[in-house]
Write a protein that binds this DNA or RNA. Structure first.
Lengths: 222, 222
DNA sequence: GATACCATTTTGGGATACCAAGCTGGGATG
DNA sequence: CATCCCAGCTTGGTATCCCAAAATGGTATC
């Protein structure tokens, strides 16, 4: 039912996002082929796809898992802010209460005491689903792809005490503004949420750069 | 120097954007293979790449050139407006006069009396280069990819008398605002330019839908 | 001990063979 | 004449093979 290509693509993406394969690590087509017991054709198709997602790249001749690139992370976050703010304005206009109920459920499904992995996933999904509710497929995909590409960095972020509660409170405030259809407030809160998160993320990564490198992760400065 | 993959990809993209292969037309890997005298491996890689660009898609089993999809065009244009407005605000902040000189040169390089193809290209390039000057690679690529994907529809647009002069005047006004670093004005003018263009584009396509279908182009309603 | 050089291996890019799943068309059947 | 069915062909998906170029590693040289 699932083609080899999709299978390799999915598994490889999961391993990269899950840091089972470290940022900066080299990949060979034949190596991936052996690891997933597929032939080169689907492996190459999967690598091509992951390349467009920015999860793997070419280094001269040869493939590498995308490194943690501070400059890229900052630009990507700025991009994400623009797209996501535009999306939330549309979401406010549409006033899809049923869809917003789903978001609400996402927020209550986990709190600061939940497993870190769960918080990580729900945090990304909140933003992705919020964008989906805009009804605009390109805004949605822009946010989704950016979040995916930021996923590893966000996972590696060393968050201060209370950071999760704070993020969750901001999510609730954004959702409340969306519920009342107050686009300007929602946009303002969301922009502040994202740009604040960006600063903390970049500060954390810059401060922990040595630690990351010690784990064998390639970290590229801005 | 240029790989077969790149060659096929480039040629196929040009043929699609140039409407040498019509929207909705079916493609077979072996057909493309024969047309460009390449083997299936590079053909397949090129199709995969063009798929992520939205220029070809899969229809069940098999490939088709993306149809003119009115709903997609509208959403894409909304996406483009969000990204491009964010980009121009950054461009204003950077105040790169040298880069702006390049834009100026683009505007004077052709006017309403130039060949239609030239106007089409310069119109796209103005927006793409404006976004590039933001210095943010993701905003830039967002605009570039959206413009590419909108290219065929913009080419097929039936423009009223004076539309080119109007667009060029708007471009000049936007550039002037950017030169003075007036981000708010530049953003407002750009947003109006894009949303106005979107309405005219969609109206034109909807009105000419029969004509387009008569030319063998697949047109999908919103 | 450092370095320049060359043989060997490895790698990605390309070409081709094979396969299973659909599609097509023509003929048998009612 | 309409309908159904099946053989053959076409298609995308996959598995290998081949090749030129780049990386590798060992060795002779200074």
């Amino acid at each position: 039912m699932m083609s080899q290509t999709q299978s390799v693509e999915t598994q490889l993406r999961e391993m990269i996002l899950g840091l089972d394969i470290g940022p900066g690590e080299k990949l060979t087509e034949r190596g991936v082929e052996a690891r997933f017991a597929a032939s080169r054709t689907p492996v190459r198709a999967a690598l091509l796809r992951l390349e467009t997602e920015g999860l793997v790249g070419r280094e001269g001749r040869g493939w590498t898992v995308a490194p943690i690139h501070l400059g890229e992370i900052e630009q990507l976050s700025v991009y994400r802010e623009a797209v996501e703010v535009a999306a939330v304005k549309l979401t406010c206009q549409r006033n899809d209460q049923t869809g917003l109920d789903g978001l609400e459920a996402l927020l209550v499904s986990c709190d600061a005491r939940s497993a870190r992995e769960e918080v990580h996933r729900a945090g990304m999904d909140f933003h992705i689903e919020l964008a989906r509710l805009s009804g605009n497929d390109f805004l949605f995909r822009g946010v989704r792809d950016a979040m995916t590409r930021l996923s590893r960095a966000r996972w590696l972020e060393v968050r201060r005490e209370g950071a999760r509660e704070r993020a969750w409170a901001e999510h609730r405030a954004i959702l409340a503004a969306v519920r009342t259809g107050d686009a300007e407030t929602a946009a303002r809160l969301l922009a502040a949420h994202i740009s604040g998160g960006r600063e903390r993320l970049l500060a954390s990564l810059a401060a922990d750069r040595r630690g990351l490198k010690a784990r064998g992760f390639a970290v590229v400065a801005a």
